[in-house]
């Protein structure tokens, strides 16, 4: 195993959103705008990085029998910390993401990486894995958010791209639009990127 493979896995081969379909709740719920997608992605990455680091450091201390409660305590700590810091320093984002910040605890991506990677690999590898998976998750959320925001509000990152004359298709920033956009983007991801990887 080397750093390059771990990075590639996180971004493409095992992309948490388009391949593994992990953490669908935030993926579908907060991607109404690119900004929210980015905020959720970064918050998740911060938690993932923290939990991967600490769990890989503690892996010899944690007995196998109680590993899940231990992982959850570590993850919940980082989530609560992230929430407090966002509330204090990024209030707009905190309000926009709302209930989905505490819900990062139950994002199966994070527990999944703790269980399958951080508890079995060295700390440097685990840090890179946390970054790679977090980046893969963030990029997917930003793309999804950008597509939905573009069609649903005519803008990307709040920047009005399509002009005021564009009639916004409000369905795209509502729940049905999340499913439509995710389905179509997954199809494109599979066709374009996986085809390239095979050849």
């Amino acid at each position: 195993m080397n750093f390059a493979t771990i990075l590639k896995n996180g971004f493409v081969k095992e992309n948490p959103v388009f391949i593994q379909f992990l953490g669908m709740c935030p993926v579908l719920a907060v991607t109404g705008t690119a900004t929210n997608g980015l905020g959720m992605g970064l918050a998740t990455t911060a938690v993932l990085l923290g939990s991967n680091t600490v769990i890989s450091l503690l892996k010899s201390l944690i007995p196998n029998k109680i590993r899940i409660p231990c992982f959850i305590v570590v993850i919940a700590t980082f989530v609560t910390m992230t929430g407090m810091i966002m509330n204090a320093y990024f209030p707009v984002l905190f309000d926009a993401l709302g209930i989905f910040i505490p819900l990062i605890v139950v994002n199966c991506l994070i527990l999944g990486r703790a269980e399958t990677f951080a508890s079995k690999n060295s700390t440097p590898f685990s840090i890179v894995d946390g970054l790679a998976m977090g980046a893969g998750f963030t990029v997917a959320l930003v793309v999804l958010g950008a597509v939905r925001e573009l069609f649903g509000s005519g803008s990307v990152f709040g920047l009005n791209l399509l002009g005021d004359a564009y009639p916004s298709a409000a369905i795209m920033i509502q729940p049905p639009g999340a499913f439509l956009a995710l389905g179509i983007l997954t199809a494109i991801f599979n066709v374009v990127i996986l085809k390239k990887m095979k050849s």
Binding site: A169, A170, P176
Partner: peptide, 10 residues
């Protein structure tokens, strides 16, 4: 339904 949700006023 898609049109109704998207362009409610129209």
């Amino acid at each position: 339904i898609m049109l109704t949700i998207s362009y409610t006023d129209r």
